[in-house]
Design a binder for these strands. Structure first.
Length: 606
RNA sequence: GGUCCGGUAGCUCAGUUGGAUUAGAGCAACAGCCUUCUAAGCUGUGGGUCAAGGGUUCGAAUCCCUUCCGGAUCACCA
């Protein structure tokens, strides 16, 4: 039983004994004692004031006395401030807690069992017509972190990706390549496939825009209004017509178009794989929209038969969601083809066939909140058990100083470039530091990779996912303060001490003698360490990677203060030295576990 | 216009299910600390009407209502 549990249990018993009233454990408010008061944990007694019919101070005093008498092993002392009962926990309890933390290699994690729910989490979901940018990175990092957090809370997790590999946007890239590519390939261009395809997409847009402008001018000269002319030009431009024709050919399985499509997609996937690998992101199962987009139709027609949906005179199929407070939603066009929503239903169908899903999480930007509200209702109506409670993990956009990222306007931050830059920065920063020990070049690069990516990942993940976040490319991501490298540095320092201890032949036992005299700072650290369990649970409940990031920062900040004020290897009292080593080791472990959940690697030295 | 989400220091952000005279970090600015386990660190100074107003109660940045500001969305686009 933990210290908290023991105290809560004692409070419940105390209320029963003193006031003959029954309270449950959840009603006991136990919190960390504020810095300015003496004690470690505080019981808020206001909830018991009515039961006891006494002043808050009196209740706190009586309860304090009871705890001291009946829970002697944990409660060493107590004091009362207004309605707050501050408890001083016995040093032996703290050391025992540290021993428990040390003994558990996966402290704070819950193992999945056979009965654990299966959670499927979808993230990334790229289009195949352009390389990944910073917005995708936020998605991927959040998704993979979330998957690990959910797994650490004792669930079975399947990570999935739905690749949007068909549609007009791919045709645009294909067409541009045909017209202006001169048979170039990633090999001959010396360029990643996704970037090459992205270039052709941009090229298409450039030519298309020129055509539109010209056409519009012509229309205006013919006496058309400006707005109308622009609209019409957009539809009439020869390039877009050609792209549409290509899409039709694709849908009709035209061998030539299909072959080109296949080839170009392969290039893109090879490029994506590199990016994913660098990001440290992976999937258990990848779905392709070209495989799923027809599946939804079947399901919709099934729903139509059951009378869940209705058909209009023009043949289009709709869902009426007005009774749920929403609008009507198109599911099949009048020509019988699918829309976005239909595809998502199709993907859901395939997934349900592939896995016994208990819960589904979609990591998708907040611009699609409405879409997922509708999807949830539709899936529920169609009989998917997890439909009603599907989670749309909705995250905010990444903004640049001059507004949103727009690939059309070229105001994007490319993921590959950004990662490479961060790693290079980390390498340079490290070079500038004066080091006592020379680090070999290949290890220096490996450290720079961990640190550069750590800085980037932490920068993105520490922010509450719901909020839009600002990224200023002008100011590069910092390596000081509340950053990934700060945490990694702390870890590297501990690793260094542990190496030295080992060299000196010091063995850190798994269990520390509970009679060692420890300081306030040290009990604070143990208490903080213990908070990891709650942080993991909370992050799992709230789907909050940022909660883990903030925890890791608080823990390392606390440790750095300790590191500064206390000597570890220089401590003369052998028992204290061993204790501090064990404490440091536990901090390193928890930091590694916590940052591991975020996909951030720890260097053994920096 | 309807719905949803945000608004905390000059900037970027924390603030666990309401809790303690003084709302916390980091960056930026300024001032200190390396003959001692890694100074990517530590310590200090300045900086706030928690968007505004009302309500709920022992107690509100946190919950409720109203208003203001910003964003998203409401397509036979994906």
């Amino acid at each position: 039983m933990t210290i908290e549990e023991k105290i809560i249990q004692a409070v419940v018993a105390g209320v029963k004994a003193l006031y003959d009233a029954v309270v449950i454990a959840d009603q006991v408010q136990l919190q960390k004692t504020k810095k300015e008061f003496e004690g470690h944990l505080t019981v808020v007694v206001f909830p018991f004031v009515k039961i006891a019919r006494k002043k808050p101070e009196d209740v706190a005093a009586e309860l304090g006395k009871y705890l001291q008498d009946n829970a002697q092993d944990v409660v060493a002392n107590y004091n009362v401030v207004k309605g707050f009962l501050n408890i001083v926990v016995s040093p032996a309890s703290w050391i025992q807690l540290l021993n428990e933390i040390s003994a558990d290699e996966k402290f704070g994690f819950k193992e999945a069992t056979n009965d654990s729910p299966l959670v499927m989490i979808e993230y990334s979901s790229p289009n195949t017509n352009k390389p990944l940018h910073l917005g995708h990175m936020r998605n991927n990092l959040l998704g993979s972190a979330l998957a690990r957090i959910i797994e650490a809370n004792g669930n079975k997790v399947v990570k999935t990706n739905i690749v949007n590999d068909r549609g007009i946007h791919i045709c645009k890239s294909m067409l541009a390549w045909q017209k202006w590519g001169n048979g170039v390939t990633p090999e001959t261009a010396g360029k990643k496939g996704d970037h090459l395809i992205g270039d052709f997409y941009v090229l298409f847009d450039k030519h298309y825009k020129a055509e539109c402008d010209e056409l519009a001018k012509q229309y205006i000269a013919d006496g058309m209004g400006e707005e109308e002319a622009k609209e019409k030009a957009k539809q009439d431009a020869p390039l877009i017509k050609e792209a549409h024709e290509m899409l039709v050919k694709w849908e009709h399985n035209d061998p030539e178009v299909r072959q080109l499509w296949k080839t170009m997609n392969e290039w893109v996937y090879a490029g994506f794989d590199e990016t994913y690998k660098m990001m440290g992101v992976s999937f258990d199962k990848i779905y392709y929209e070209s495989d799923t987009y027809l599946e939804g139709k079947e399901k919709v027609l099934e729903g139509l038969e059951k009378g869940l949906f209705y058909r209009r005179e023009d043949g289009s199929v709709w869902a009426d969601l007005s009774s749920d407070g929403l609008d009507e939603k198109l599911l099949l066009r009048s020509d019988g083809t699918s829309v976005y929503m239909t595809q998502d239903i199709g993907t859901a169908k395939l997934r349900y066939e592939d896995y016994p899903i208990d819960k589904m999480i979609y990591v998708v930007g907040n611009e699609q909140n409405y879409h997922f509200q509708v999807l949830s209702l539709l899936l529920d109506k169609l009989g998917f058990e997890w439909g009603k409670d599907l989670v749309h993990f909705s995250y905010g956009m990444v903004e640049l100083p001059n507004g949103k990222m727009k690939s059309r306007e070229g105001t994007v931050v490319d993921a590959d470039e950004l990662m490479a830059d961060m790693i290079e920065d980390a390498y340079q920063v490290s070079k500038e530091m004066t080091k006592k020990v020379q680090i070999p070049e290949d290890e220096a690069h490996e450290i720079a990779r961990k640190v550069g990516l750590g800085a980037l990942k932490y920068f993105i993940l520490k922010v509450d996912a719901r909020k839009n976040m600002l990224f200023n490319p002008e100011e590069s991501i910092n390596f000081n303060g509340d950053t990934g490298p700060f945490i990694q540095y702390t870890y590297a320092r501990i690793a260094s001490i542990l190496r030295k201890a080992e060299e000196a032949g010091i063995v850190v036992p798994t269990a520390i003698d509970s009679n060692v005299v420890i300081s306030e700072k040290e009990t604070d650290l143990i208490q903080k360490l213990n908070g990891f369990k709650a942080a993991v649970r909370q992050a799992g409940q709230d789907y909050s990677p940022s909660g883990i990031a903030n925890y890791c920062y608080e823990l390392t900040k606390e440790y750095n203060q300790f590191y500064h004020d206390f000597s570890i290897l220089g401590e003369e009292d052998e028992n204290k030295k061993i204790f501090r080593l064990a404490l440091s080791k536990a901090v390193a472990k928890v930091v590694r576990l916590g940052m591991g959940l975020l996909g951030i690697e720890m260097p053994e030295r920096m």
